[in-house]
Simulated scan of single mutants.
Amino acid sequence: MKKEFLKSSNEQLKKFAEIVNRDKPLRQVTVDEKLKVGVDLGTSSIVLTVLDSKNKIVYGAYEYDHAVQDGIVVNFIESVNILRRLKEKAEKVLGRELKTACGAIPPKTGKRSAKVVANVIEETGLLCTGVEDEPTAAAKFLRLSNGTVVDIGGGTTGISVFKDNKLIHVIDEATGGFHMTLVLGGRYKIKNDEAEELKRNKNKESEVYAVIRPVVEKMATIVQNMGAEIIDPVIVVGGATNFTEFTTTFSKKLKRRVYKPPYPQFVTPLGIAIFDD
């Protein structure tokens, strides 16, 4: 299978990476046009994305955080404060108020988790229009009608299988980027904050990946254990996949081609915004 099926989404991701957290939007917006907002309350970061009515990228911002654990908000006030700052920054750059937003949760984490996410969003003055599951949001952005999305965040690995635009199977496992951080902390006998910084240091990537490869292999094993339920193409997204050798490890374990878009940490947040109708 050729990589052309990801071409459109790859181009959008590159555009988003150019404007995220900057002082200018991708284009100017009018005061009355419809804007769609996505809120991704992740374990390692909170991301706010803004699209227009045609699902074209307008703006985005993010902050690293420690307010969420395994995809569930554990520090409500910190989450609200971060999201409020992101909202205010976006409104300043866009020159207008944001009114609605959609959120997301890991698969099968329940109505209670969805309610907490909705409460965080609405505490900032936004009207929450819905809460989707994260891999489904990723598939929406990727325009994937048939295939498997493996969404690896800070705390969880969510796997969603799609056939004919329908979600036919979904699982969620408590393994993610935070577990990589724990392994690094144990290996070098450093605190989690230091290990997290080391993990994100691109200059140390080769050294870091050699240590955390077993965690990646465990993630791949979760997918492998689904056997015949997996449908190609397999696409990995999420901030924890941001290693050059990640897809190589996954492909070797699964014995099938695995794809990863550029800036995989932004796929799900952008997909969430599409649902803000």
Rank of each mutant, 00 (worst) to 15 (best):
Q265K: 13
K163S: 15
G71H: 09
A90K: 06
M1N: 11
P214M: 01
T43N: 05
V37Y: 11
A90P: 05
A195G: 03
N192A: 08
G186L: 06
K204M: 14
K218R: 13
N55T: 01
R213T: 12
I212W: 03
L13S: 08
V234N: 04
A17I: 01
E63F: 03
K260E: 08
N201R: 09
K111P: 01
V237N: 05
K166H: 15
N225P: 02
P264A: 01
I230T: 02
C128Y: 08
V29N: 08
P25D: 14
I222C: 12
N146I: 10
G153W: 06
F141V: 00
V74W: 02
T268Y: 04
K92Y: 09
V131D: 11
N81S: 12
D172N: 15
N81K: 15
T156K: 01
K260W: 04
V93M: 07
F266P: 00
A240V: 04
I121R: 04
V74P: 00
D276Y: 06
G42E: 13
L13I: 08
P261E: 08
D151H: 13
S160R: 01
E88I: 06
G95K: 05
V216D: 11
V116C: 00
I121V: 15
C128N: 15
V208F: 10
A137P: 07
S206V: 10
M180C: 04
K54G: 09
F266I: 05
F178C: 03
N225T: 11
Q28S: 14
A228V: 09
K34P: 03
T109D: 02
Q69D: 12
T241E: 09
G110V: 08
K191C: 07
I82D: 09
V149R: 00
V183H: 04
K253N: 10
F76L: 12
D276E: 04
K163T: 13
G271P: 08
G158F: 05
K14W: 03
A104R: 03
E245H: 12
L48T: 04
K191N: 13
Y188A: 03
A61N: 09
P269H: 07
Y59H: 12
D32W: 06
Y188R: 05
S53E: 14
E134L: 06
Q28A: 14
V149T: 01
G271M: 02
S145Q: 13
H169V: 00
S9D: 07
R187V: 10
G227S: 13
G186I: 03
L41I: 09
F243P: 03
E132D: 14
K92R: 13
G238C: 10
E18T: 14
V117G: 02
R112G: 05
K204I: 00
I46F: 07
F5R: 07
E123H: 13
V234L: 07
A118C: 06
